[in-house]
Nucleic acid binder design. Structure first.
Lengths: 220, 220
DNA sequence: CTCGTAAATATTGTATACAATCTTGTTGAC
DNA sequence: GTCAACAAGATTGTATACAATATTTACGAG
């Protein structure tokens, strides 16, 4: 556990991103305090930060829960994510350095391996690194930071998405097209491919959520 | 003053956006506490939120200051802002409703009036409302929120830019082109015009640096 | 048995007390 | 007079105590 109050912000972020804390899960202050071995004060400050970041929702006098955006908001978030990634791709295509190219290619082949094996968990992991490599290649540290933040926020949902049949293979082919465009310096194509790559995820996921809601309504 | 700890978050945001609190200004916890008539605890929580939002920088054991990004980061932020606004324009052109069109047109003429008088302060105010109208017209609440957040963060610097000679007139002509494109449903043109309107490059970059130096002299 | 009401309990929000760290001012050597 | 070391003061970080609100449980009327 890292030092200071800021330390467990990262820990909680990770718990949410990896699904150890599911959307809607309650975040009890005293439980968290005892878990981290501190008092409620620093825990509350961490929750405030997560709240400002949108990862957590604080309802006055009613406690904090992991944010669970409705399908509509989720679509909107994916729409913005798509645009941020498109922007990263556009800039990367224009500003690509040999170091970033190497980095992207390495992550691409790591993804390829995971896709071949067909393991969603390791693909999820490598996929994340691949996208991060593109953010970094934009040579815009602020954009990179914004993209990472939103990516984290969407992580819990992206994760489920990859379990859909055949998604790994399709995703990997899209990755290859993206890298081709970036390396060729074709900023328009890079932007277009990345936008599509992300948007599709959003659409598929909104469908998934909608069907889940329908199901639960039928059950209840 | 609004209720709860969240209340003075908005107050402080406003103080920073309007320049009552300049970049680099120190945010003393006890001063703020007595100003708002509360103890340090809720003040600290507010500062955490502002920190997560990027408006404030908290240095361990050394207090919080209003963020003052260096010129490079500022450029990067404007680059992202340009893309977000371009996206708003693109979506607005596709999804424009009569209500949003009316709203945008009203704000456009309010800007026109302020530009004619040549008052930077009232133009600043109306300009903000104009841009907000476009964010809203995107019909993507999450995008709107993101754009507003970044806009707030850039406010202290946008303000300076408007003091440059002739900027008001140029800005207003750009506004007209933007509205034309949106109303015509030309999403590509709307995106392009907004991107150009917001991005800082060429001589505007030099202007920005110059005004930054002026501002930092005030703080010190 | 069901529903509404109210007391009991639990949880969050705020204030205060104390500990840890930084900043400032003083003292003294050179 | 300048600089370093140290002490005094100020400020932030954390823990605890108390207040305000929400949730749960118990009870009684119908």
């Amino acid at each position: 556990m890292a030092k200071g109050a800021a330390g467990f912000v990262a820990t909680l972020e990770d718990d949410i991103a990896t699904g150890r804390l599911l959307p809607g899960a309650r975040l009890d202050e005293v439980s968290l305090a005892s878990r981290f071995g501190v008092s409620r004060t620093p825990v509350r400050e961490a929750l405030q930060q997560l709240s400002a970041q949108g990862l957590v929702e604080i309802r006055p006098y009613r406690g904090a829960i992991v944010s669970s955006p409705d399908p509509r908001k989720l679509m909107e978030m994916f729409e913005v994510m798509a645009e941020l990634e498109a922007m990263c791709g556009r800039l990367a295509a224009r500003r690509l350095t040999p170091e970033h190219e190497t980095n992207i290619r390495q992550n691409l082949s790591a993804c390829a391996q995971a896709a071949e094996i067909g393991d969603p968990d390791s693909y999820y992991f490598e996929n994340e690194r691949f996208h991060r490599a593109i953010y970094a290649a934009s040579a815009n540290a602020f954009l990179e930071e914004q993209a990472l933040t939103l990516h984290k926020r969407l992580s819990p949902f992206r994760r489920l998405q990859l379990r859909v049949r055949n998604r790994l293979g399709v995703s990997q082919r899209e990755h290859e097209a993206i890298v081709s465009a970036i390396v060729a310096g074709d900023s328009k194509a890079a932007a277009r491919e990345l936008r599509q790559h992300v948007i599709v995820q959003g659409e598929r996921f909104a469908d998934l959520i909608a069907s889940l809601e329908l199901q639960s309504r039928q059950t209840a």
